[in-house]
Amino acid sequence: MTIKRFSRAVGIAAGLAIMTLSPALAVAQEQSGAAAQQGEQPKAERVMPGRIGGDRNERRQQRERQQAAAPADPAVTKAEVEAIFTAASTSCQVTEAKLLGLSADEAKVNVYEAACAGAPGYILVASTPPQIVDCVVLDSQAQAARAANPEAPASPACSLPANQDIQGFLKAYATQAGVPCTVDEVKVRGQSSNGAVVYEVGCAGADGYWIEKNATGWEKTECLQVLGQSGSCQFTTPAEQAATVKSWLPGSDAAACDVQQVRLMGQNANGRFVEMTCAGAEGVIVRLNAERVVQQVYPCATAQQIGGGCKLTTTAPASTPQT
């Protein structure tokens, strides 16, 4: 028999990419940082005379001076942010908004931060089309930049108090995705090949997940499957995966197996196939249905025709009866 490889996890692993941010966004946030810490209205970047000639440059400088001279009206700022969300077809019930400054590109458009009711907030650039990046992604980028170079300049980050509980937002994502465990840690992993943000969820004492949200809702992929397709799960240990697989065995012929190692082999029309090693006993391959109920157990000694046989257990082939 042949066993088909899981394709979805392969697509994620192959397409996973690190998200990058607009330099204009980073500069605007950097300019506003000191003012935000002091509770002041950030000032726009100055454009020195002569850098861009003609009336356009004069109008731009005048706009910058006007913006720097007076703090923005909170109601006006909120309305401007809501208009950007509408233009970008992004859902956010804005609870607070602030003007960060002007973008660092030639357009010199406004850059804002917004807090959303019950959800992560965003940094928004009022360009055409608008640029919107959520605070969870920004936090992930900042952590990755610090890990790569602790001496690097500070990365863009959200500063409104309502946008600070990043782990809270991430754990809420895991709940929305239907992750059936006690979540102990979550992080952004990158983007899948279809552009969706991929998150890794760690589970206390159990197999973790990759989750992503698409147009139809959340999807989750067990780390057992992710690892089987050359991905990685930083928050899941082999012991946690073994414990999860062992929880599927009661009532089956493999119930006595004290599971030590597991390997997802693949699937066919009959179900999923998982290899296990058992402490003090022969390893086995189990076939599970979609509800993870064991349908059949194959001892490694006689399972050479099941997806190439056992790899975790070294065993001699069964002897052929003499005729």
Score class of each variant (00 low, 15 high):
Ala255Pro: 00
Asn270Pro: 01
Ile132Gln: 07
Leu138Gln: 01
Glu291Trp: 06
Gln37Ser: 14
Phe169Arg: 02
Gln296Lys: 11
Ala36Gln: 11
Ser7Tyr: 09
Val27His: 07
Gly205Gln: 06
Gly15Val: 10
Val183His: 00
Gln191Leu: 15
Pro150Gln: 00
Ala279Ser: 08
Ala281Ile: 09
Tyr173Glu: 09
Tyr199His: 10
Ala215Met: 04
Gln176Arg: 13
Val81Thr: 13
Ala142His: 01
Ala44Asn: 08
Cys257His: 02
Ala290Asn: 12
Gln305Asn: 15
Glu240Arg: 00
Asp258Tyr: 08
Pro42His: 04
Thr20Leu: 14
Thr237Gln: 03
Val293Phe: 02
Val259Asn: 03
Gly309Tyr: 05
Pro49Tyr: 01
Ala17Phe: 07
Tyr209Arg: 06
Val133Lys: 01
Ala279Gly: 02
Ala36Asn: 08
Arg292Asp: 15
Glu80Val: 11
Glu151Ser: 09
Val125Glu: 11
Gln61Leu: 10
Pro180Gly: 11
Arg65Val: 14
Lys220Gly: 01
Arg65Ile: 11
Gly195Arg: 10
Val94His: 07
Ser32Gly: 12
Gln41Asp: 13
Ile52Ser: 03
Glu45Gly: 13
Ala36Val: 15
Thr244Lys: 04
Glu275Lys: 06
Ala254Asp: 00
Gln305Ala: 14
Lys171His: 07
Leu160Pro: 00
Glu80Phe: 03
Ala83Phe: 05
